[in-house]
């Protein structure tokens, strides 16, 4: 076959591009919880408590006083006995922030909703306002506490502790756009699979049998 000339299009020089380069958008960090993957193993709960302890070590944290407080809870959906993880959604329009009478709750440019504990007066309005029940209260210090997305870890380039501890990938972390893209891919893949099954149903692969390899067990071991 004769060699074809490579396709080429006239292209303006790079310097001719005149549209302004947009400044990088600040990240909008999200912890995304997928109940389909959740086994209810409570490891996120443990990891959260360890991360919010003084020693940050599992074996030492359990002996600390005051006891480290986890910022998320693993609940069970009534009657279904399915696990469900409740933690702060870091809402775009946080009701807790809106009701706080002293302005102790604020949302940063990175999307993290924080509590300024020095300002908090412990009035518990935020607990009432949160539609998820994600706001918790520290009785020892008399302040409201909530998920802070493990800021110390984020600064080191690590994901939040709960996400790292999740063995099944039910908890995910990233910029909102990444999470959305991931969701799109996941849904798209499922949709594509369903379509392909409709168009050309594949016969199920025959499973290898153990009998091919191992004969029947004998009665007695020597």
């Amino acid at each position: 076959m004769a060699q074809q000339p490579a396709l080429s299009f006239p292209r303006p020089p790079l310097s001719a591009l005149s549209f302004p380069v947009e400044p990088a958008k600040p990240k909008n960090y999200v912890i995304f919880y997928d109940p389909n993957r959740c086994l209810g193993c409570w490891n996120c709960y443990l990891a959260c408590a360890v991360e919010h302890s003084q020693s940050k070590d599992l074996f030492q944290a359990i002996h600390e006083t005051p006891k480290p407080m986890p910022r998320l809870r693993v609940l069970s959906i009534p009657r279904l006995a399915l696990p469900y993880v409740v933690q702060c959604m870091h809402c775009e329009n946080p009701p807790c922030m809106n009701v706080c009478p002293v302005g102790a709750i604020y949302k940063g440019p990175d999307g993290i909703v924080r509590i300024d504990e020095a300002v908090c007066i412990g009035c518990k309005q935020c607990i009432r306002a949160c539609p998820f029940g994600a706001m918790l209260f520290d009785h020892d210090r008399g302040v409201a506490i909530k998920c802070d997305m493990c800021e110390d870890r984020l600064r080191e380039g690590l994901p939040p502790a709960c996400v790292e501890a999740c063995p099944t990938g039910a908890l995910r972390f990233g910029d909102l756009s990444e999470i959305v893209r991931g969701r799109e891919q996941e849904v798209g893949k499922r949709f594509y699979e369903a379509l392909r099954q409709l168009i050309e149903p594949r016969p199920k692969a025959k499973k290898a049998s153990y009998k091919d390899v191992v004969p029947a067990p004998s009665a007695r071991w020597y």
Binding site: V50, A165, G182
Partner: peptide, 18 residues
Amino acid sequence: DKWPPRNKKFRMKGPVYE
């Protein structure tokens, strides 16, 4: 040896945490 591990190579690959 930390628990949970502190994995600097954390990446999201599609929907899955790699």
